[in-house]
């Protein structure tokens, strides 16, 4: 089976800046001090994700889940190791990050589409579908500063799924909007699955993981602790978390 994403010996460290970060004073002081502390977020991850697979990444806060997704999504460069990606990647990371409150819904659709790499020309044919999916027909010509949080997220999701990627990265966004909209989101996810797209998603929402993923990777302090079929890994993870809490 052909792989969509290959991670080989992936390591990522972040520099921890203490105290007066981001000033000239810090720069001058740093000449005298020892090297800044390094935080290893990923300590050597090997992972192969097949085309068409839906993989969930679970783990406690600080386990490196989001860092891993960020590297696949080209937000971070790995410190060492290799990332091989076959196909067009789109990130569904925290919806509406690129929205501007003063612009109308329509204006934000074009802007956000461009941020996600969609040509304005291609966007024109998608606008109606986006507005319909987000259920915002009445408000689309008003500035989004007047939108509710749910409306903003719906618009963000509606745009992101229009990118038509080969690989979709999802970071904690399936819990968007009301029940009806969530149902639409899950419908869209299964449509992606039917179309043979690869989905990698990060979530703390274990029921959602059980529902959507076919394979789960459990990350723990920057290394893969377990990798396997959804039921097994989620059960082991829950047992592990319960055991940790007893200590």
């Amino acid at each position: 089976m052909q792989s969509a994403i290959e991670l080989q010996g992936l390591k990522k460290s972040f520099r921890l800046v203490h105290g007066q970060a981001g000033s000239i004073k810090a720069l001058l002081l740093s000449f005298k001090r020892r090297k800044p502390e390094e935080l290893m977020a990923l300590k050597g991850v090997d992972l192969s994700i097949a085309k068409g697979e839906t993989l969930a990444v679970i783990g406690r806060n600080g386990s490196g889940k989001s860092t891993m997704l960020g590297i696949v999504g080209r937000i971070y460069k790995p410190t060492s190791g290799k990332v091989i990606v076959h196909g067009r990647v789109s990130a569904l990371l925290e919806l509406g990050a690129g929205f501007h409150p003063e612009l109308t819904g329509i204006e934000n659709i074009y802007l956000n589409g461009a941020i996600l790499g969609i040509k304005t020309r291609d966007m024109k044919s998608k606008v109606d579908e986006i507005v319909r999916f987000a259920e915002l027909e009445k408000f689309i010509d008003t500035p989004i500063k007047g939108y509710s949080k749910g409306m903003v997220m719906r618009l963000g999701f509606a745009i992101a799924v229009q990118v038509d990627p080969d690989i979709l990265l999802v970071d904690e966004v399936l819990a968007v909007g009301d029940e009806a909209f969530q149902a639409k989101c899950y419908e869209k996810i299964s449509e992606f699955q039917r179309l043979g797209k690869t989905i990698v998603f990060v979530s703390h929402d274990l029921p959602a993981v059980r529902r959507v993923a076919s394979r789960v990777v459990w990350l723990d302090k920057g290394v893969i602790r377990m990798d396997g079929p959804t039921g097994q890994v989620v059960d082991a993870y829950m047992a592990g978390v319960a055991a940790d809490e007893q200590h």
Binding site: V89, A91, G98, L116
Partner: peptide
């Protein structure tokens, strides 16, 4: 900054 941490461009 928000955008830089979430999307590649």
């Amino acid at each position: 900054y928000d955008l830089l941490k979430k999307v590649y461009f």
